[in-house]
Amino acid sequence: MTSTIWWTIVGATIVTAVIKAFGPVVMGGRELPPRISGVIMLMAPALLAALVVTSVLADGDELHVGADFVGVAVGGLLMVFARAGILTAVLVAAALTAVLRLIG
């Protein structure tokens, strides 16, 4: 790997450490108000959902509904409406995506 890649990794590591240390330093050991704590707890699932949707729908510079979108959508619907477990939903989504790619 080139030195540019290593410097990028080192820079990203330092920036991440500074960002993670910022909250405790500013708060000084005090508890967050419940409303703010609730919002922070919901940020990770919202970010994960946004990354999944972006990854599934992105096709270069355009949005594209394809086999992977259908698989993820069916897996999500199974979890929400059929109360399927995560493993079942992932397996069904993967199988459906594979079948749709095979025939498409």
Results as ranks from 00 to 15, higher is better:
Ala93Ser: 15
Met1Gln: 05
Val52Pro: 01
Ala58Asp: 10
Arg35Tyr: 11
Ala73Val: 15
Leu78Thr: 04
Asp68Ala: 14
Ala73Glu: 11
Val18Ala: 14
Pro24Phe: 02
Ile86Glu: 14
Ala17Asp: 00
Ala67Asn: 03
Thr2Ala: 10
Gly71Gln: 10
Arg35Met: 14
Leu42Thr: 01
Arg35Val: 14
Phe81Trp: 11
Met79Val: 09
Gly29Glu: 07
Met1Leu: 06
Met1Asp: 05
Val26Cys: 08
Leu78Ser: 08
Leu47Asn: 11
Arg83Glu: 14
Met79His: 06
Leu63Met: 14
Ala82Thr: 02
Trp7Lys: 09
Leu78Arg: 06
Gly66Gln: 05
Val70Arg: 01
Ala84Trp: 03
Val18Ile: 13
Val15Ala: 14
Arg30Trp: 02
Leu32Phe: 12
Ala84Gln: 01
Arg101Lys: 10
Val10Phe: 14
Leu78Phe: 08
Ala12Glu: 02
Gly85Leu: 11
Ala98His: 03
Pro33Val: 02
Val15Gly: 08
Gly23Lys: 07
Ser55Lys: 08
Asp59Pro: 05
Leu91Asn: 13
Glu31Pro: 07
Ala58Tyr: 04
Glu31Cys: 04
Ala95Gln: 12
Thr13Lys: 07
Val72Gln: 03
Arg35Glu: 15
Leu57Asp: 05
Ile14Arg: 09
Ala44Cys: 02
Leu51Asn: 07
Met43Cys: 10
Val70Glu: 03
Leu32Met: 15
Gly76Ser: 08
Pro45Val: 02
Arg83Tyr: 07
Ile36Tyr: 04
Val39Gln: 11
Phe22Thr: 02
Ala44Arg: 00
Met27Thr: 10
Val56Asp: 09
Gly23Asp: 12
Thr88Arg: 09
Ala49Ile: 15
His64Gly: 06
Ser3Pro: 01
Met41Tyr: 12
Phe22Glu: 04
Asp59Tyr: 13
Leu100Thr: 03
Leu57Met: 13
Glu62Val: 08
Gly11Pro: 04
Pro34Trp: 06
Met1Arg: 07
Val70Met: 05
Ile103Leu: 11
Asp59Ala: 13
Val26Lys: 15
Val25Phe: 11
Ile19His: 01
Leu57Pro: 00
Met1Trp: 06
Pro45Cys: 10
Gly104Lys: 08
Gly60Leu: 09
Met27Pro: 00
Arg35Asn: 12
Leu87Lys: 12
Val56Gly: 09
Leu100Ala: 04
Val18Phe: 10
Ala89Arg: 06
Glu62Phe: 04
Val26Glu: 11
Ile86Val: 13
Phe22Asn: 01
Gly66Glu: 03
Ala44Tyr: 00
Thr8Asp: 06
Gly60Ala: 11
Glu31Thr: 12
Leu63Asn: 14
Ala46Val: 14
Ile9Gly: 01
Ala12Thr: 00
Val53Arg: 09
Pro33Phe: 04
Arg35Cys: 06
Ser37Gln: 05
Ala93Arg: 12
Leu87Met: 11
Ser55Ile: 06
Ile14Met: 12
Val56Cys: 10
Pro33Tyr: 06
Pro24Cys: 03
Ile103Asn: 02
Phe81Cys: 09
Pro34Thr: 06
Ala17Lys: 00
Val90Tyr: 11
Val39Cys: 10
Ile19Pro: 00
Leu47Glu: 13
Phe22Lys: 00
Thr97Ala: 12
Thr16Trp: 02
Val15Glu: 04
Val72Ile: 15
Phe81Asn: 10
Ile36Lys: 03
Trp7Ala: 02
Ala89Glu: 05
Ala46Thr: 13
His64Asp: 03
Val92Gln: 09
